[in-house]
Design a protein around this nucleic acid. Structure first.
Lengths: 199, 199
DNA sequence: GTTTAGCTGTACCGATCGGTATAAATCAGA
DNA sequence: TCTGATTTATACCGATCGGTACAGCTAAAC
């Protein structure tokens, strides 16, 4: 556990475990057997179960932001990037088949009981919203995204839809239905060629 | 604890506690002090902590369906009913200021570990979707809801948006932003007076 | 007043929780 | 090969978990 590479590996495994089973649902015994090291080493490296959890949460934040940013960057234009990013996150749940969104799970399980965790979660959502907002602004400048709603609200709307989809994913909603919901959500970005007045 | 009225009262208080703190976050000691009775009485009335939780989950299911059905019924037409129901659920979180959606919390906390709870959650979402679907079908017949997407998909989309909003509620998203997201979500039902072709 | 049936509350059960003291083992340097 | 320092693993800590045995109290029956 001394070398840094092993620490990274252990952190990644801890993230997977916390992601699947939650904070309270993951015991130190599970962690040690999954990490392949004994408890004293874990405590020497991470300090406590809670600190390990917070580190995993930060790791997740970075992971999600990197993935989304990557999908947005490699698309030919802003709108195509939004399409692929949203479709992937809503219909497939990120890139792996893990359970829901770790930040969401954390927010729901710990609530107000762990202010540090809640701060990281809130920051994760804020950063995600910011990434989308900037891309939406590009799309609005390109003319591929509607401009009659602010990029702020549209970005919040997208994050809202993603988080809802992550919930439905855990309740085993059908994939076909979720694909269509994703398409519907994305169509919200369409230009209002001639839209009825909204109340 | 013998009379039925006391059982109902205790069940309601248990629901509140589980709702706030989750299954694992609620100990039997908390339950007994909140319910005002001692442990043997709780076990005599409900059997176990898990059974009490399942009963609370069923109670919640009934509560939500009654509230939504009520809002839909007392509106002048289908579209107005959908507007008020969605707006209330997305912007205010039901009727009280409790934390998130109990069914969602349950799905995320317990996951696959409690099949019975998961079945109730899935059934709750299915019932909610059905209520919306029927109302959307009425709206489509009335001509107040778009008909180029199936009522099935639109209903699933609404539930998706509601659940997302319940998450954002727990991460302390701003109320103004959530109001606008709700308005945006509702505008999805608008008639496509002249909509651009969707890919 | 005495007895008896039923309920309430206390006190306790084994298991498991997160965390740590301590002993065994490993390995570098000479 | 011997020594000494650091990492490893075992064994244990008090606290708390869900659940229950049992004693003590209440109250109706006679």
């Amino acid at each position: 556990m001394a070398r840094k590479i092993e620490r990274e590996e252990a952190l990644d495994r801890a993230l997977t475990l916390f992601w699947d089973r939650g904070y309270r649902g993951t015991s130190m015994d599970m962690l040690t057997s999954t990490l392949g090291v004994e408890k004293p080493s874990v405590y020497a490296s991470f300090g406590s179960k809670q600190k390990l959890y917070l580190e995993a949460l930060l790791q997740y934040r970075q992971l999600v932001l990197d993935i989304v940013q990557g999908m947005l960057d490699e698309a030919p234009d802003a709108r195509a990037g939004l399409d692929s990013a949203i479709r992937k996150m809503m219909a497939r749940g990120g890139r792996t088949e893990r359970k829901g969104c770790f930040a969401t799970n954390s927010a729901l399980e710990l609530g107000d009981e762990d202010p540090e965790a809640q701060a990281i979660v809130r920051d994760t959502f804020a950063a995600l919203t910011t990434v989308f907002r900037k891309t939406i602004q590009r799309g609005q400048a390109e003319g591929t995204v509607r401009s009659d709603w602010s990029a702020d609200v549209l970005a919040q709307y997208l994050v809202n839809g993603i988080e809802g989809a992550r919930i439905m994913e855990r309740t085993k909603a059908s994939n076909r239905a979720m694909d269509q919901v994703a398409a519907l959500t994305l169509s919200m970005l369409d230009l209002p060629t001639q839209q009825a007045a909204r109340g």
